[in-house]
Design a protein around this nucleic acid. Structure first.
Lengths: 209, 209
DNA sequence: TAGATTGTTAATCGATTAACAATC
DNA sequence: TAGATTGTTAATCGATTAACAATC
């Protein structure tokens, strides 16, 4: 694509994907921008504008084919290109993610976990080996994982992110409730900040009072 | 406040709070909109516009007092008003949240957990009692918690959300990777959608390629 | 006082919505 | 064909940035 796509549109892409998959599961084969918009809480116009950032997936007088559009959005999101991930930190949250998160359906394969606790180093979690965090640099240099998942205490976030960037990581999925300021800003960071989310909820509740 | 504050501003409030707390910890007593903006990746102008949605916290020629501004933003976010929360679902993610998430520093007190697994019903997790999910309606009717945290499998999300709304819940913190469409849209929902976040990262990595 | 920096208005920029010709 | 619905341009709306008088 030539013209850059706005952040707002990018953040809606996964939602299109999810809703289209739902439609597919229900056996729906075509959908109009109007109906898809209603389902997602968007206007028909916005749906068409969003999709046309990437190409003309619809057909006049008909609508959009669910299967085709779902596949196209999957390709735009690169879900069809399997990328590898390592996770640093196997406390409760890290463990929850390793055990339950379906990396594969989001285009990822989790290949290794790292921790500093001797009690878990050398074990496996759901089939993923846990290595000593001191081996992180060597491992990443040798294996070139695509993404690092940060689930360790926030005080180590900068240091670990630095190591990952040194080794050529391509993206960071950050759960540490810290704004990472990477030296290399070519490395995209996606934050999942529980605390910020809950504070927003706190605010909204206050408003409704 | 009279004029409604935009979503974009609201989502930045927790970040102001976090960064101001950092400054406070470093012993900084005053900060200009310029310096705060630099720290957060915003323009000085935007910082001033944002803060002036809620009041004039600064002083010409001086800047903003860190302590005072931090406290004011805490009040805007209602962090000083303790609200109660119940969590539904004590799998890995639910357990991770119960064990590790600091509800208190975000203005909440977690009071109960619910699950359907007989093996955990009747136990405690970090001091929080786990009840049978079938008791959820009665418990909420009797105790009127403010917020429900959804960490159960997504297929139950609608049903549980319905029960919570029936009982007068004031907000929902939704981890189920589903868009909840509540009947009562007076109840705010905050989503923490891991899959959407990772898909966005997948997209961004693809762009950098 | 002079310098710094706010609060606030105006200008710009970008995103959403509306409109409609194209066309299946 | 007639009806439906897209792709796309134009209009509107809202958010960000710039500018500057007020003032500490």
């Amino acid at each position: 694509m030539e013209k850059k796509v706005s952040q707002a549109v990018i953040r809606r892409l996964p939602r299109y994907h999810t809703h289209l998959r739902e439609l597919q599961d229900m056996g729906v084969t075509k959908i109009s921008s109007k109906d898809l918009g209603d389902k997602m809480g968007l206007t028909a116009s916005q749906v068409r504008q969003d999709l046309n950032c990437f190409g003309g997936f619809g057909q006049q007088g008909y609508g959009y084919p669910v299967d085709g559009l779902l596949e196209s959005i999957g390709q735009i999101l690169k879900l069809d290109q399997i990328k590898t991930a390592v996770i640093v930190g196997t406390g409760n949250l890290g463990r929850a993610i390793v055990n339950n998160f379906n990396f594969f359906s989001n285009g990822f394969k989790l290949v290794a976990a790292f921790d500093s606790d001797p009690a878990v180093i050398g074990t496996e979690i759901s089939g993923i080996p846990v290595y000593d965090v001191r081996q992180l640099r060597d491992y990443c240099t040798a294996n070139q994982p695509d993404v690092g998942v940060l689930t360790m205490p926030k005080k180590y976030a900068r240091e670990i992110a630095g190591i990952l960037c040194d080794c050529g990581i391509r993206g960071i999925w950050n759960f540490t409730n810290t704004d990472l300021h990477l030296d290399i800003d070519a490395v995209p960071v996606e934050n999942v900040h529980f605390a910020e989310s809950l504070m927003v909820l706190s605010y909204k509740i206050g408003e409704k009072k």
